[in-house]
């Protein structure tokens, strides 16, 4: 059975905003599915449709084997959700809120209490558990919110940017727990993120969203392999030089693809190391010398750049997300 399956899933807000524009997803049971995309690409809207908070404009979706339109109540019973914005009641204590959440999912009183205690431990909130949430820090709130998604032992869990705003240590702990639940209990995760590293490290499959559409999908390794080449990233003094360089590089022997993002050019070619010297000469001849040059194996950011024509993290140089991780996983 597929954990998540959509066909032509679409959400328009009015005639102009095509937040999600006909996406077909197939998420296997037991998979960690990474949903990547920049601000406004439609990630949250997709999550909200799949979790019955939004009615699709068109298309169908089945989650945990249940049609979201035909039987939303059953979908809610089977899935856990942590939305992008934490949603907590500040007057309750963490333990009260988590226990109530469990009870509302139909757990018996004892069971709800035990689950709450266990999860508070997992998200390292045991000490703060009996204090009002009003006094929690942002990271503590997010961790509690995360625990809420898991309290009823769902088979499919949606996490909308779960680690945004967490410090690196807590982020690592969240990843650890996601992996553990996934491996030991076969829980399926649908995880939206803007962090390439997160997708790369956690996800079995990633889908890249751009303006409401899925523009690339596959395992991180396969996506990187599909680039099938090395990436030479060049930075220029200005966009003019970059444009000139890109035009020259298009004609360079063996180049598979050239992508320019502002004053930066990424060149995809099979044997980067041997070509570097010739590229430098070519650029000099073209009157567009590079200010910096980097050769690396493709990363998910390169996949992203190639699929969408822009970087995921606005303004981040293609190389910045990369060092040491090229070809990892």
């Amino acid at each position: 059975m597929l954990a998540i399956e959509t066909t032509g899933l679409t959400k328009h807000f009015g005639p102009d905003i095509r937040a999600v524009d006909g996406i077909d997803l197939r998420v296997e049971e037991g998979e960690i599915f990474g949903f990547l995309g920049q601000n406004g690409s439609g990630k949250t809207t997709t999550v909200r449709m799949l979790t019955t908070l939004l009615r699709p404009t068109a298309g169908t979706a089945r989650v945990a084997g249940v049609d979201v339109l035909a039987n939303p109540g059953e979908v809610r019973r089977r899935v856990g959700v942590a939305l992008q914005e934490v949603g907590l009641d500040e007057l309750q204590t963490g333990r009260e809120l988590l226990t109530l959440q469990g009870r509302l999912f139909g757990l018996a009183p004892r069971e709800a209490k035990e689950r709450a205690a266990r999860l508070l431990e997992v998200v390292t909130l045991t000490e703060a558990a009996d204090r009002p949430i009003r006094g929690y820090s942002g990271g503590m709130k997010r961790r509690l919110d995360l625990a809420c998604a898991l309290v009823h032992g769902p088979r499919v869990v949606f996490l909308d940017e779960p680690t945004t705003g967490l410090d690196p240590i807590t982020r690592e702990a969240v990843w650890q727990y996601v992996r553990e639940l996934n491996r030991e209990q076969g829980v399926t995760f649908f995880l939206t993120t803007q962090y390439l590293e997160e997708a790369d490290r956690l996800a079995d499959t990633v889908a890249i969203m751009d303006r409401g559409r899925v523009v690339a999908e596959g395992s991180p390794a396969a996506l990187k392999a599909a680039i099938g080449s090395d990436v030479v990233t060049l930075a220029f003094a200005g966009e003019g030089e970059a444009a000139r360089a890109a035009a020259a590089l298009e004609r360079f022997e063996g180049v598979q693809r050239v992508v320019r993002a502002e004053a930066e050019v990424a060149v995809y070619l099979p044997n980067g190391a041997t070509a570097v010297a010739a590229i430098v000469r070519l650029l000099d001849d073209a009157g567009a010398p590079a200010e910096s040059l980097m050769l690396k194996h493709p990363t998910l950011d390169d996949v992203f750049l190639r699929a969408t024509g822009h970087h995921l993290e606005e303004g981040a140089p293609a190389a910045a997300a990369a060092p040491g991780r090229g070809g990892s996983r």
């Binding site: 908070l53 109540g73 809610r76 959700v81 939305l83 949603g87 959440q101 509302l104 999912f105």
Partner: peptide, 9 residues
């Protein structure tokens, strides 16, 4: 929080 409650069964 309303949505959190609305996401329960």
């Amino acid at each position: 929080y309303f949505e959190k409650l609305a996401l329960t069964s």
